[in-house]
Design a protein around this nucleic acid. Structure first.
Lengths: 231, 231
DNA sequence: TTAGCGGAATATGTAATACTTAATGTGAGT
DNA sequence: ACTCACATTAAGTATTACATATTCCGCTAA
């Protein structure tokens, strides 16, 4: 019985339900008519009649779009298109425990790539306020006595970098990915997360103060080297 | 009746439908019981009865999870949990014409960050096969006579870099983002996309051949400088 | 005995109907 | 002209019924 599972793997040929088709129709409708956020979309009953399906099926499709934040609906006003949160879809899927190790590793790699490439946004958007915040975190880290406190500083430091990058979509991306990383750490043979690599947080801050955009990427690479070596 | 007034203040914010609640229940159920891909989940009627809602509502919630690739269902076998495609949710939302300019710009920034930070993956995963492919693209680009052909080479070159990075999630991410970039180009006062920056594609390939990981980030930064300057 | 044929049982997919709820519109009466 | 009650509308929920595909089981026949 255990062999059967493998052999029957190729079977699931694409089977589209009515709800799938209605969903596609709606997407097409929105795009083709270039409907903008705030604009109304047809009533459930109209859609159902127009496509020749039951209202039930239409509601399934609409329910999907509503989950993604693409539409909103009020009791009598009908439904309107909304500006979706781009990262909403990611948020709905990414949960550490349902992602397998392989994918978690790939997301962790993605994070390393982001941190190294972040420099140019930082130098263009940096402000005294954020630099001082980074200073404070570094100081807090140096005075820290417990491992937990040091890890918290590590997280705060990098999170502040993303804040300073001034890109909300990127920040949100990072926030969603963060919980996954905690699980990756397990595989990373218990590195000392506080004093990673030869470049410290203090060194990175110094580079940011100095406006040294050339130095940033390789400094961050060295800072993350233990992780990179683990790839 | 002054109490009612107080109650009415919080009400309009928190309006969740039954389908929303069932969806959350299901997510919780999956996580708490640490159900793995391939494991079965309860029948629609069981869920409906267990939560005291109509089967219809349950189907809306299940329909959402199915769209995200979190579950699959066969006619009699019931439904099973599946390993979702992490980037599926993004794909469902990201369509250039429904995203506003602001978000498109942020995604374009994200792309620049990725390209600069990509180096370490490339050096660890590079192969003669891919390097030769890059060579061919560079050669094709130099022989190109039309602007269209040059832009195609530009796209091919960077796409091949992502291929070579050997991270399918990252590659998929890039593939989803790509269509958005074409719209960003509009704002970018018609740069000459083929000979961007002072560092050419040929230069980048040379660095890859030379195993010069230190040089990569700043070389790519210079290559993308016209875009970066536009931030 | 065994192969295979056919029907029962099961769970999802679809349809139809009715009712609830909230928001909007409308008209009658003071 | 204003208010209040009632009608109207459209989404949310429930119920029922049937279609369809798949598995299971048992029966018959070679």
């Amino acid at each position: 019985m255990s062999i059967e599972n493998d052999l029957f793997k190729l079977k699931p040929i694409a089977y589209t339900t009515m709800a799938d088709q209605v969903e596609n129709h709606l997407r097409e409708y929105i795009i083709k008519r270039s409907i903008k956020p705030g604009d109304p979309i047809p009533k459930e009953t109209e859609i159902a009649q127009s496509l020749g399906v039951s209202r039930n099926v239409v509601r399934e499709a609409l329910s999907r779009l509503r989950m993604l934040g693409m539409i909103e609906s009020r009791k009598k006003r009908g439904m309107i298109l909304t500006q979706p949160d781009v990262m909403k879809g990611l948020e709905l899927i990414i949960h550490p425990t349902i992602l397998d190790e392989h994918v978690r590793k790939q997301l962790f790699e993605l994070r390393l790539v982001l941190e190294v490439g972040l420099g140019d946004l930082l130098f263009r958007r940096k402000s005294d306020e954020y630099l001082k915040k980074l200073d404070a975190i570094v100081e807090r880290e140096q005075k820290a006595t417990t491992q937990i406190e040091r890890i918290r500083c590590e997280v705060d430091f990098h999170a502040t970098l993303y804040d300073m990058a001034g890109n909300e979509t990127l920040k949100r991306f990072q926030d969603i990915l963060m919980p996954v990383f905690e699980y990756v750490v397990e595989y990373e043979s218990k590195l000392d997360h506080t004093s990673v690599g030869s470049v410290t947080h203090a060194d990175l801050v110094k580079i940011l103060y100095a406006d040294n955009a050339e130095a940033y990427p390789n400094a961050m690479r060295k800072h993350l080297m233990p992780h990179l070596d683990h790839l």
